[in-house]
């Protein structure tokens, strides 16, 4: 709240005062938020892990994600063995190095969640802006569709789509939708864009009533200019915040689909699938559940912390 009390009428004379942009002010606030910084650190580490999963696996463990070590890492009953100096996180039921697979799992999780969130944000921003700006028919259609999608029993339907399109090699809709990573991304994006659309619509509805919009119109600005120059810059903060908060829920969505066996293909390492593999044997192989679970929790927590930190830092009321 620097605005009202700060500069006074005679401020033009104080030329030495250095101005700060809204972005700089937000960063100032974010910098002092320890939880958010911790979250950011975790995210940076996860991104590095995803990018360098292969390198790290090779040099630290010396194993690939699908290398089988049945002789070394399963006992006489075929059950996996726990962590040791060579296999830090132990082995999974197939005798693969869980440490390496968890690293690769980060890549899968982030890739799918980021891609799905990116698509969802794009669709949500376009439709939400159109609905809020033009109102009328456009608004009615977009609002009804978001209502319907948000009201659907999401997981149930996702299971349906994944089961219909994911089991046969040809996919469904004459091959338009094929099983695999892109199908998972598609399903997650389909169910998450309405969140963004709804938030964007609400923000646009309130921004379009501001006098600066009327001012732009009185200067002769057209709709396109008003949307891109006047409205959208004011949406950047909420879009960033809610996209950041959407990522962890999409990570969990992917994990849930994979847990149900409807997510990524069999050989792709995924935390969700690891957890489902662990479900049958966790009483004898606790590490199977612990390590993927820990990473999943840490990742979603980190994104949530950063999202909350961004919300506090970018809050338009404190930024005015």
């Amino acid at each position: 709240m620097t605005s009202l009390a700060g500069p006074v009428e005679s401020a033009p004379l104080m030329g030495q005062v250095v101005g700060k942009s809204p972005r700089q002010l937000a960063w100032e606030r974010f910098r002092h938020d320890r939880a958010a910084l911790a979250g950011l650190l975790v995210i940076v580490l996860l991104v590095l892990i995803s990018i360098f999963a292969g390198v790290i696996g090779k040099y630290l463990a010396g194993h690939g994600p699908n290398d089988l070590f049945q002789r070394e890492m399963t006992d006489e009953f075929g059950l996996p063995l726990g962590p040791n100096s060579d296999f830090w996180f132990g082995a999974d039921t197939a005798g693969r190095d869980l440490f390496v697979r968890v690293l690769y799992g980060a890549r899968t999780s982030l890739l799918i969640a980021l891609a799905a969130t990116g698509i969802a944000v794009f669709i949500g921003v376009v439709l939400g802006t159109a609905a809020g700006y033009f109102r009328g028919v456009a608004d009615t259609i977009v609002s009804r569709v978001t209502d319907v999608i948000l009201a659907l029993p999401l997981l149930l339907l996702a299971i349906g789509i994944a089961a219909a399109c994911g089991t046969t090699k040809e996919g469904c809709l004459n091959g338009a939708i094929e099983p695999g990573l892109s199908l998972v991304v598609f399903i997650i994006a389909l169910f998450s864009w309405p969140y963004i659309a709804r938030i964007v619509r609400g923000n646009v509805l309130s921004i379009r009533e501001k006098e600066f919009i009327e001012s732009a119109r009185s200067l002769g600005a057209g709709n396109v200019r008003i949307m891109f120059r006047e409205v959208l810059p004011n949406l950047i903060a909420p879009i960033i915040v809610y996209s950041t908060l959407l990522i962890p829920s999409n990570i969990l969505f992917e994990a849930a689909l994979s847990f149900l066996g409807l997510g990524v293909p069999q050989e792709t390492p995924s935390w969700g699938r690891m957890l489902s593999d662990a479900a049958g044997v966790f009483d004898v192989a606790w590490w199977l559940m612990l390590f993927p679970g820990l990473f999943l929790v840490a990742t979603t927590l980190a994104f949530n912390l950063v999202g909350d930190g961004l919300r506090d830092a970018l809050d338009p009321r404190s930024g005015r």
């Binding site: 620097t2 605005s3 700060g6 500069p7 006074v8 009428e9 401020a11 033009p12 101005g19 700060k20 942009s21 809204p22 930024g319 005015r320």
Partner: peptide
């Protein structure tokens, strides 16, 4: 500078 850096009169 941004508007928030100015007083109402400015």
């Amino acid at each position: 500078r941004y508007p928030h850096e100015f007083s109402g009169g400015q």
